[in-house]
Amino acid sequence: MYYYLYDSCLNQKKYNNLLAKVETRLTDLGINGKINYLSFLKNIEQILQEEIKRGVKTVVVVGNDRTFGQTLGTLAGLGVTIGLIPIDKSSQIAKFLGLPDGERACDTISSRIIKKIDLGQINNCYFFTSLEAYGPRLAIEFDNNYLINLENKKSLVKICNLGCDRETKSLPDDGQFDVFIKDVKQKFWGKKEISFSRLTAKMLRLTSPQPLPIFLIDEKKIIKTPATVNICPSKIKLIVGKNRIF
C-alpha cells in the first residue's frame, strides 16, 4: 500500500502540470495510492503515525530534501519503506540515491530497489546526509577514545553519513560517520593555505565553552553544542535508483 506525501510548495500553480504527469505515470504503473498535501497547519509526524496505524507500508515523499529529511526522522525504525520523487534538479538527496526528477522517478519507485541505510542521530533528532559545525574552540571526542580541539576560527567540521563532492565521499551503509575537518589559514599576500583531515567514528561528542551552532543540512535546522552524535545502522529502508553513489 503506497502513501504519497506532497510538499506544501506543490500547491503552487507552476507544479500543476508536473503533478498531473506524475499521477498519470503512477496510475499507469499501478502504484497509485492515497495522497496528502502538507501545509503549515498539518503536523507531519501526526499524519504519518496515523497512516502507519492504518497499515501503510510504503511512504513516497513528493517534494524537496527538507520534507524528505523530516519524513525520515519520523519513520526511522518503524519498518516502513520510504521513496522520493524530487520535484526539481536541486535535490542533493536525489542525486545521492540515483533518482531522476519528476515523472521519471515514478519508474524508479516502481522498480523497488530497496536498501537498508544508516541514519545519524544528534540529541534525539535524526539526520540523513550531514551536519556542519564551525570552530573556534570546538572539541570533538571520537568513540570515547581520542579528542580533537579546534583552535582555528575558520575550521569547518562536516559529519557525513551520506555525501559526495569534490573533497568528501561518505557511504550510508558502512555503519560509521566520516568526519571531515577543513582548516583555512590566511598567509601573506592574501594567500590561503587549506588543510584537510578525514576521520571515521561511530559516536561523537561535540563540546565548546560557549554554545556553538550545528547545522543539520537535510532539515535546515540548528542544534547547539553540547551534542552527542550517534550512528544508527540499517535504520531505514529506502527505494534507490541504479545510479546511486553507493
Binding site: 581520542y146 580533537i148 580541539n149 575550521s155 565521499k169 575537518i181 582548516d183 578525514r198 571515521t200
Partner: peptide, 24 residues
C-alpha cells in the same frame, strides 16, 4: 596530496592535534 583516496582512510591534517588512543 591532501585529497582522500580509497586506500587512505584516515588523514590527520597539519592543523589538527589528536589526544588519546587513536585506534583504527
Amino acid at each position: 596530496d591532501n585529497q582522500p583516496t580509497n586506500e587512505t582512510e584516515t588523514i590527520i591534517g597539519p592543523s589538527v592535534r589528536v589526544e588519546g588512543d587513536f585506534i583504527t
